[in-house]
Design a protein around this nucleic acid. Structure first.
Lengths: 163, 163
DNA sequence: CGGCTTGAGTTTCGATTCGCTACTCATATG
DNA sequence: CATATGAGTAGCGAATCGAAACTCAAGCCG
């Protein structure tokens, strides 16, 4: 019914473009700033404290403070003072933050493959079989790998039968 | 075969952190700036011309010009004057640019799932079976879905057997 | 041809943001 | 108590962003 054929490799008509809605802007709002990805990588690497991140990322303290508060504000990191030393604050990934893993891995893999060609080290392996994770890909419902050419856009709900 | 056991959910020792090498910084170098993701989304949506992107994204012209030249400089977009109208310039994704699809989709899915809750529309479907693509995930070599807790870091040194 | 329009930028300039350093402040530690 | 440490904040010059005007080559129109 509501399934206009809009090929992925052809321009969308303007009226269509105007209706595009997409989770991307909200994602960018939350983590699109310069240092956010690297801070998240640090968090995934197990770093949980301000000084630790500051020292290893070489980021300015005020910027780090701002990014950390923004990330906690978006519910991506959780901020909690430590019990044993109340000066120390622990920043920990929330479920929402951990859900960014595929994005981070995909970006890292892309950078490794197409960037400076430096092989990442260490590499993430599955604890169970001790083998490296697969390349992150877009897959069809039945599991086939898909490229952009295999895809097209489709409206999934009642479409205003404009035009 | 050096294979230091560094659990993914525990802090790495400083000496280890210092040796971290990762494709992420080079990826961020290429596409980490404010508008780059949205420009890439536009490119994946089929937009190929300056005015088209400018109009739809509402980005300032100088910024768009800068981002486009940066993206072409990194080999992510290809810049080519049109044959039929030599005023028009066509910006088209290269293979390197198309390889960012999993990153974009993963980000979009994350934004949709955890962000403002706005369901994306239109949605990408597989041309062959007309069904929406799967959620982008990190997978083990045998295809199991993995979360961060299933992973650990491992040093690889010239190990052609795995991967 | 000559005037008008269009596509793709570039320039200008004020407003933000970045990043470095120094400072604060509450909590440990000796 | 004196000192150190963790997590920020304050100040300020440098870099970047953003809106609007301007440039410039290419098409279009009579």
């Amino acid at each position: 019914m509501s399934d206009r054929p809009v090929p992925a490799d052809a321009p969308l008509p303007p009226s269509v473009i105007a209706e595009l809605s997409c989770g991307l802007p909200s994602a960018i709002e939350a983590i699109g700033e310069r240092w956010s990805f690297l801070i998240l990588r640090a968090a995934f690497n197990g770093m949980r404290h301000f000084e630790e991140m500051q020292g290893h990322l070489g980021i300015a303290r005020n910027i780090l403070a701002d990014r950390l508060s923004r990330l906690t504000g978006h519910g991506i990191l959780e901020r909690r003072p430590c019990d044993d030393d109340r000066r120390r604050i622990e920043y920990r990934l929330t479920d929402k933050g951990e859900a960014l893993l595929p994005v981070l891995i995909a970006l890292r893999q892309w950078g490794e493959r197409w960037g400076t060609g430096v092989p990442s080290n260490p590499v993430l392996i599955d604890r169970r079989d001790e083998r490296p994770v697969q390349e992150v890909r877009v897959r069809a419902a039945d599991g086939r790998d898909l490229t952009w050419k295999d895809l097209r856009w489709s409206w999934r709900e009642a479409d205003p039968a404009t035009e």
